[in-house]
Amino acid sequence: MEKSIKIKQKPRVLDVVSKVLIAIMLVVLIVYCISLLILPVWMILTSFKNSIEYVNNSFGWPENFYFLNYSGVFEKLQIRITDFVIYNVFHMLGFSTLYSLGSSLINVFFTTCMAYVLSKYKFFGSNFIYNLGIVVMIVPIIGSLPSAMMVRDALGVYNNMFLHIITSPSTCFSGTNFLLLYGAFKSLPWDYAEAVFIDGGNDFTAFFKMFLPMILPTATVIFVLSFLGSWNDYQTFMIWLPDTPNLAYGLYQFQGVSRQLYKATIGEIMAGFSLVIIPTVVLYSASQGLILSKFTVGGLKG
């Protein structure tokens, strides 16, 4: 930012306009924030209403708090998998945690490795891989779902959560997470590694002992965001892992199929929603400070 900026004269009018605009936008922003709060509040209120009360009072304060909706969730939120296996809330909670933790950890780990290697080492093909990542990110491949289904089915990855998780980092050198980590590694000088080498360490120690700890806050942010994403992911389960439903997929079924099967009422569905968001809210509140400070996205330089 070397070039200096010369403003010919102070445009007073613009100053005023700018102040007014900011004031207006602040009001807009606050109204927007309030609008975001309406739905969760409505969800919680509705979760305490029975269906008759909802028909008469769809937004107001519940007249009688109807706690049975919550026990109804535990009773009715279940999915029958092929062949006599019925999963209840606790099973789904297990699958949710397993999947979110597993896929987030493995993805963050491999993305970190890739970002580190590509940002710190020049070797045959390193530029190619980096550019390939950019290409994968910006070149859309449209309509390969049927083909993906065929391949995954043939390899046994379809409907197998373990294989699904361990094969998930297939494009870990692409995407915003990669770029974020890549940028973070770039900003760390190589001198740290030299110091490790002088102390008799090798590339492994440089990475695991020196750079990894330094990058941990950024990696944690990515982990948390990725965890939130996979916790709430129902489409993956709908398409690839229908037999190991997580909570999000369970709820998807709950509000669709189970409305018929278990006659779930709107109150019970809202109670289900209220319950399923607890873990993510807790996790987010715990790591909020870190996310707010560390989440940046850089350019697509190739």
């Binding site: 070797f123 980092p169 297939s170």
Partner: peptide, 29 residues
């Protein structure tokens, strides 16, 4: 050698996955 080993150990697995689940899937498509 250590460096090559290091690089390979970190990147080969994701690249193999990429070949199967991206390249092959799309070629098949």
């Amino acid at each position: 050698k250590v460096r090559t080993l290091f690089i390979l150990s970190l990147i080969s697995y994701p690249l193999i996955l990429f070949l199967i689940f991206y390249v092959f899937v799309n070629l098949n498509s």
